[in-house]
Write a protein that binds this DNA or RNA. Sequence first.
DNA 1: ATCATTGGCTTACACCGTTAGCCAACCTCA
DNA 2: TGAGGTTGGCTAACGGTGTAAGCCAATGAT
Lengths: 177, 177
Amino acid sequence: MTDEQPDVPSPRVRQIVAAARELVEEEGLDALSMRHLADRLGIRAPSIYKHLPDKRALEHALISATFEEQAALFEAALAGSADPLGALATAYRDFARRHPHLYRLMTQRSLDRDRLNPGIEERAAQPMVQALDGDRDLARAVWAFAHGMTILELDNRFPADADLDAAWQRGLDALRP
Amino acid sequence: MTDEQPDVPSPRVRQIVAAARELVEEEGLDALSMRHLADRLGIRAPSIYKHLPDKRALEHALISATFEEQAALFEAALAGSADPLGALATAYRDFARRHPHLYRLMTQRSLDRDRLNPGIEERAAQPMVQALDGDRDLARAVWAFAHGMTILELDNRFPADADLDAAWQRGLDALRP
DNA sequence: ATCATTGGCTTACACCGTTAGCCAACCTCA
DNA sequence: TGAGGTTGGCTAACGGTGTAAGCCAATGAT
C-alpha cells in the first residue's frame, strides 16, 4: 500500500531532466553522467539524488518526455494525410535523425514500464495501429521494420553506398495493406 | 605503410576471446569487464593488454567470431530449402534467442569495420541477398524487419500479449517477392 | 653467454554510480 | 517570536570501470 512515484514531477526535477536532455542532445549518450549533469546545473552529483532516486529514474523521465513528443508528432503526421503510413514513416525517421541520441536512449535497452508515464507507450504506438486499420500484427511488423531501418542507419550498419530511401520504399510498399 | 592487425590471432588471444564469450553468454553483456574476464583466465586485468590493445578490440574479435558462426548457420539454412526466406528468418530469430547477449553485442553499437575480419559482414549478409534473388534494396528491408522484430522481442518492447509469431508471419509474407 | 622478447605482475589515475552524514535556509504553526 | 521539521545543498568515501607505466622472471635466439 505504498505510494507510487508522483506523476507530476517537481519543477526542480523538470529542470534536471531538461538539462539532461540538452546534455544528451549536445554531447551524446555517453556524456550523460551524474557528475557531468550536475556541472550543467551548477551543483554536485550527489545532490541530484535529492530529487531522483537513481540514474535509471532520470533516464526514464527523459524517455517519458520523449515519448510524449513523439506521440504528438505521430498524431500530427497522421491527421488528414492521404498516405497515413508514408507520413508516419517519414515522421518516425525524421525524429530519429533529428534526435539520434534521444532515439538511442529510448530504444537501446529494455525499460521499466512502472517508471514511465502510464499509457505513454501505447499513445505513441496508437497512430501506427490506426494507420493500419487496427491490424495489430501488421502494425508490429511495420514498427519492427521502421525501427530496424532507423537504428541500422543510425549505427551505420548499411554499406556506405546503400540506397536507404529505396529500401524504405520497398519495405513500406510491401507492408502497405 | 604500417602493418594492419594480423588476421590470424595468436592462440592466447583465441583463449581470451573464448573466455570472453563464455563470460558474456553466462553472465550477460554488463558482466564483460576486463577485471572479470581476467579472473576467468587466472590473470590480472592489465595483462590482457599484452594481447589486445583495448576492450573494443576484444569485443570486435568476439563479434567477428560470432559473425562467422552466423554466416555458417545462414548458409546452411539457405541450402536446399523450399522456402529460403522463411528458413533464413527462422535461423536469424533462433540464433538471437539462443545467444541473446551475443546478439546484442553484435548489433547494439556501431562498429569499426577495420577491426573486423575482412569481408565477414558481407558473408553474413549474402544469404539474405541470395534468398531475395539479388534484390539488395529488398534484402535491406527484410534485414531491418528481422533485426527490428528480434531486438524488440529481446528487449521486451512488445506488449506481453502480442502474438509475435503472427507478426513475423505477416511481415515475411508481405516482404516475400 | 648474452640479449631481446614475451607475458605476467603491481601501482596508479581518472572516471563512474551511489551512500552517509552534515548543515544552512526556509516554512509552518503554536 | 520561537521551535521544529523539511528541503536541498555540501563533502567524503566506497567499490566499480578502462587503461597507462614500469618492473621482472622465464623463454628463446644469436
